[in-house]
Design a protein around this nucleic acid. Structure first.
Lengths: 121, 121
DNA sequence: CAGCATCCCGTGGGATACTG
DNA sequence: CAGTATCCCACGGGATGCTG
């Protein structure tokens, strides 16, 4: 039987670092919701206003900040359209689609949890 | 702690709701780090003090709050030990282990992202 | 319409001290 | 040791108004 060092310094630093990286980029309550929205509506003209209306509870100020950060990290693409009053369309990038597996697992976990809770008591 | 259904015309309401449920339970920057820590150290005596030391950056006040919420949602178990100055050990529950797939994906994504960034420019 | 500037408030969380 | 209680401040984010 092999013993581990007793004074075990913070275990798995690498993993913690990687998770923190992910939180930094995708963290907060909105980014993954926005990515989910854009992934499902890949071929649609998703204007700022439309996103703001569809994602219930988000304010324009916060949405603006979130979109900017997502664009900075190349997860979404921003395109100004030459309309009368200017409109802007946002879309998912190929790289942005890599978050789909995260989203799917979070959705699945949430659904399972809800079922678990309902079956209690 | 589950949110009430939103009266929400947005597409894919169910998915958004499920994701929001997950955020409510596992959200914030600490809960998944704590679960990850406890999953890896399943058979170890994880006292409050030990966790506080190993998870760099967390304060006792916040750790206390997070542990309470995780226990409330049955993701971890709290056990007082009959030591001289009382100690408390926390451990992952079977249900808590269901978060491992989430953690694994977040770790993996973070690592991949880091590699991507390094290979740019 | 998109999104920035301002003002303003609630609260999350740090620092510190105290208790069982 | 494992928390709890207080004080206190920074800042996230709402509301509103303005501009290109």
């Amino acid at each position: 039987m092999i013993k581990k060092p007793l004074t075990d310094p913070a275990p798995c630093t690498g993993n913690l670092l990687a998770m923190t990286d992910t939180f930094d980029i995708l963290g907060g309550k909105w980014k993954l919701l926005i990515l989910h929205y854009l992934i499902l509506r890949e071929d649609i003209n998703n204007t700022f206003k439309k996103i703001e209306r569809d994602i219930v509870g988000i304010s324009a100020k916060v949405l603006s900040k979130e979109l900017k950060e997502l664009e900075f990290n190349q997860l979404i693409k921003r395109e100004e359209q030459k309309t009368k009053p200017i409109t802007v369309a946002y879309s998912i990038t190929e790289y942005g689609k890599s978050t789909k597996e995260i989203i799917d697992i979070l959705v699945q976990w949430g659904q399972t949890h809800r079922i678990k809770i309902l079956n209690e008591d």
